[in-house]
Amino acid sequence: MGKLGSYIRNSQVWKSIFRHGVPRDRRTRVMAIMSNVFLHLHPVTIRKSGVRLSYTWCMGGLTFFLFLAETITGILLMFYYRPTPEYAFPDIIALRSVITLGLLREIHRWGAHAMIIAIWLHMMRVFLTGSYKPPREFNWVVGVILLVLVMLLSFTGYLLPWDQLAIWAITVGSNMARATPFAGHEGPGSSLLTLGGQPLVHAGSDAKFMLLGGPLVDENALLRFYVLHCVFIPFVVVILISVHFWRVRKDGGISGPL
């Protein structure tokens, strides 16, 4: 076995993939981080407090891991799901009854809930260690936006099963948009906006209409939330995660006493 192992590790194929030996000494361990595109998100060395679980709680890392898990299960779910009132609900039923090991939706849903808890606790950790203080102010702001986006990701996904739970939860949530000051038809000030005596902001033109693509949670809302959930918000999240991680490095790595 030992001989086979060393034969593989000395082969041209192996050496073309891994440019360094087994990470056993300091030099190869540094190489392991630097020569791998994924691992090089990390610095080569890190403060001792940065690897203590009691300090970091690993909640940021967990949020990112859950984002990856949600992306993978989400892509797989997209193979089975059609975002129309006609097919959405039967497709969800089929996910449980027809597909082998039908746990995809379960993992996706519970992962989403776990992600919300993890990101809240991540924020709590960052706050309680004062890690938003200079020079990390801007990265805190990026983090707040990511937190909002994670909740919106979960909210938009909530509609997709197209059952009673889904449409009424989204109805309750999106009804708030109709009360937006000036931009919602039941919002303060919107009745002041008129054009030639006609109201400018009404049920067919207000913020709720824009969110749902119609006055009610209907097929347009389903398509809109599907695109927001699967493409639009993840697209923004990926960009902001890149900024977030980059800034962690640029602002001096994981925080610790100065």
Binding site: R29, V30, V44, T45, V51, G61, F65
Partner: peptide, 27 residues
């Protein structure tokens, strides 16, 4: 402090990568 001094450093491989891997497995 519990958090130690700024120059207390460890290598990311294996100290941090190991923790990340374990957390990912548990999760």
């Amino acid at each position: 402090l519990l958090e130690g001094k700024p120059d207390d450093k460890v290598l990311v491989w294996p100290d941090l990568v190991y923790i990340e891997f374990m957390i990912a497995c548990v999760c």
